Amino acid sequence: MNIERLSLDQLRVFAQVADSGSFLAAAKALKRAQSAVSYAISTLESQLGLPLFDRSSYRPQLTAAGIELLRDARQVLDQVDALQARAAAYAHGQELEITLALDVFFPTSALVALLADFQLAFPGVTVRLEIEALGSVAERVLDGVAMLGVLGTLPIVPPNLLRISLPTVLLVGVVSPAHALAQISGRIPGHVLEQQVQLVLSDRSALTANQDFSVHSSLSWRMSDLGTKHALLRAGMGWGYMPRHVVADDLASGRLVRILTAGHPPEGAALPMQCVYRPDREVGPALAWWLDALAQLTSFDPA
């Protein structure tokens, strides 16, 4: 077996014969002489050391080995085609990969819809998502790791970033129905909130070190993962603010209940979301797509 001498052309001929059902039909599809197609297959079989087609009947039939190796051949051809497409796109200024840093409050439903559209527009571009909280999103953009970021939990945008205003996310105070705060009707005084554990999002970025946002209790448990906070709230481990779209099902089923706090309006607090990116970032087609798509958002559908 001399597999080092295999060519992509041989693999394409192999796949075409299998698809066409005959050497003659493959030759017509490839616009070659039938003898050239037959020679390419015979050479490939010789190099592999086994027959790919059974020629005993009127039409060539794939052998058992041919069926298995055809899958490998198609995989190789697909990878080569993808390589060529990505190289051509990059030569024309298109990014091969795009990294996005998104705030944990960014609605998953909106993200999924955007990613689905992006995949159709740029099937060859790899997407890397970093879901962060507070200053970590801006930090990823400032240090160049992320091409753009979507801020939500960080109320102050660093002045050296360009920004695009996005729809707001509504934050509501929630607690387990078994929690003591759930038994209080109306607005809960601040001195009562201070006596209960508040579940708070935190991060390790330098931008928000030693800073608190919407923290009303000295008894706070801090975490960087929104899913963990959500689970602890449902377990009755404390109270906290959550995006309404995240807890909508919990509120409807009664797993969580709304509470009114002195720091938030009755309908909830509208949290501005903003897309940010560095002014010196070179904007290729893929990044331009994201900037345009985010700028066109007018609302976030409930999850």
Results as ranks from 00 to 15, higher is better:
L83S: 13
D78Q: 14
T99W: 06
H92T: 08
A89E: 15
L102D: 01
E97W: 06
L83H: 11
V80G: 08
A88P: 05
Q84L: 14
Q79I: 10
A89H: 03
T99Q: 08
F105M: 09
G93W: 02
D78Y: 11
L77P: 00
L100Q: 04
L96Q: 15
L100W: 02
G93F: 02
L77F: 09
A88M: 07
F106K: 01
L102K: 01
G93T: 02
L102Q: 02
A87V: 12
R86C: 05
D81W: 03
E97Q: 13
L96R: 15
H92Y: 08
D103H: 01
P107M: 06
T99L: 05
I98R: 00
T99I: 11
A89D: 13
L100G: 02
L83N: 09
F105D: 07
A82T: 12
F105S: 04
T99D: 00
A88C: 01
I98K: 01
R86M: 09
Q84V: 14
P107W: 00
T99N: 08
V104H: 03
L77S: 06
R86Y: 05
E97G: 06
A88L: 13
H92C: 07
Y90G: 06
Y90L: 06
Y90R: 15
V104I: 13
L77W: 07
A91W: 01
Q79D: 13
A87N: 12
P107K: 03
Y90K: 13
A89N: 14
Q79G: 10
F105T: 14
L83P: 04
D81E: 15
F105K: 00
D81G: 14
D103Y: 01
D78F: 04
Q84Y: 10
E97V: 09
A101E: 01
L77K: 04
D81P: 11
Q94L: 04
A91E: 12
V104E: 08
A91M: 06
A89V: 03
D103L: 05
D103V: 04
A91P: 00
R86S: 11
Q94I: 01
L77M: 11
A89L: 05
D81K: 12
F105W: 15
D78L: 14
E95L: 05
Q94T: 10
T99M: 07
A88K: 09
R86F: 06
A89F: 01
L102P: 02
V80P: 09
G93V: 01
V80E: 15
Q79N: 12
L83M: 09
V104Q: 07
Q79H: 10
A101F: 02
Q79L: 15
L100F: 06
A91Y: 02
A88N: 12
Q79Y: 09
Q84W: 10
V80H: 14
A91N: 09
E95C: 05
E95I: 03
A82C: 12
T99H: 07
Q94C: 04
A88Q: 15
E97D: 07
A88S: 11
I98F: 00
A82D: 13
R86L: 10
L77V: 02
A87H: 14
Q79K: 13
E95M: 05
Q94M: 04
I98M: 02
I98A: 03
T99F: 05
A85S: 13
A82S: 14
G93D: 05
A89I: 03
A88H: 14
A89P: 06
E95T: 04
D78P: 08
G93I: 00
F106R: 00
L96M: 10
L96T: 14
L96N: 12
L100R: 04
F105H: 12
A87M: 10
D81V: 05
A91V: 04
